[in-house]
Write a protein that binds this DNA or RNA. Structure first.
Lengths: 212, 212
DNA sequence: TTTTGTGAAGCGCTTCACAGCT
DNA sequence: AGCTGTGAAGCGCTTCACAAAA
């Protein structure tokens, strides 16, 4: 099967996270166990997994659950997550510098290789295990290190302008933490995902329902 | 119209953010302007807005765009965002303390009224404009202040246990920043939204496509 | 008997097309 | 002419039901 629906991809990512959280040993999860862990019906989960295609080695499913050791690489391969990617943090305020110190263990196939800030002082003062650069070096560094993704954590008024510079530098994707809609030309081919805490609060309130 | 689809709600929240970013003056947006700003087709946007129901005062749409001053309250009302809600931050590590200092202006109808951490030292040392409490006081404080939502920013191994305590304290919603699947009894009626940077990176990689 | 895996039915969301207004 | 607003068509996702395996 070739095409996986958008919602199904999101669910598979969440299932992948559950499988990985189980640790390094080879745990077996039945579809109903996964149902309890993630909330979607076992029907939906089995269907999603079936989108991954039949297992390459021809072994038909054990009929007694999914082995994490086998399922993890299947999901990663189907979603194109089977190679390493470099990313950077742009804007080293409170939020940005928090993300500079992300737990390396949970980063999986992603590698943080640079941090940027317009404030040269801040770049020199901050302690960090990843190299920090002044913002004017973004274009050069992103190209040289082959950075594909940026975490955008700049002040609101600088968001659009910085995004445009990132696009010009050849970035392929932006995770936008600044609650401003970024407008980039389609030609730039930059994927954007917005993570607005303030909108997460609202979405949560909506989900909570209007019960008082 | 009563029922708004899940995806439509998410789009309306994003449109709401765009309208608000336009500032306090009463700007007019046509559906095609909104299309450029957010990417969805003008058809979709007009349909989403139609789900809000006809305007209460009987004035038929101006036929020349949506006035932000009029549209903002319509969206808020339809989504049940027309009252203030209290929230708190649980776990005051790097990420948690970054969220303690959220820009108040963009918080809108939400009000940050407490921070919690197991580490009593940290609670006393951290400077913050909101009151901080040791974690063992969560139940009491959440009840007393009427806090409905928690931002969960504790270490991974404490996530599930802390979520259970929050549920017991009567919290109504959790924004979970810890990449662990929370399992809470349906009876607790706690809404959860997961914000896993590490999964956002993956989702972005998927969106970027497999083009090399 | 419980579980996986999947074609097909069912249904909800999006898209279309057009009426009505300015 | 260009916009909003909406019933209805179209289609993609989810759910169902059942075959096959352990």
């Amino acid at each position: 099967m070739d095409h996986i629906s958008g919602p199904a991809k999101e669910r598979l990512l969440y299932i992948l996270r559950i499988l990985e959280a189980a640790g390094s040993e080879n745990r077996i999860f039945t579809s109903s166990e996964l149902e309890e862990l993630c909330g979607w019906s076992s029907h939906t989960i089995r269907k999603d997994i079936s989108f991954l295609g039949t297992e390459e080695d021809g072994t038909v499913g054990s009929a007694a659950g999914y082995a994490s050791r086998r399922l993890i690489p299947r999901i990663k391969e189907a979603l194109g997550l089977d190679r390493r990617r470099q990313f950077c943090v742009v804007g080293l305020g409170r939020l940005g510098s928090a993300y500079l110190n992300l737990d390396g263990a949970s980063l999986g196939e992603f590698e943080l290789t640079a941090g940027f800030d317009v404030n040269v002082n801040r770049v020199e003062i901050l302690r960090s295990s990843v190299p920090l650069y002044p913002a004017y070096k973004m274009g050069e560094v992103i190209g040289r290190l082959g950075i594909e993704i940026a975490l955008l954590c700049v002040p609101a008024k600088a968001a659009q302008e910085t995004a445009e510079k990132l696009a010009a530098a050849g970035i392929r994707g932006i995770i936008n933490f600044v609650p401003r809609a970024l407008v980039l030309p389609d030609a730039a081919k930059v994927a954007v995902r917005n993570v607005f805490v303030t909108d997460e609060l609202r979405a949560l309130a909506v989900k909570m329902g209007c019960t008082i």
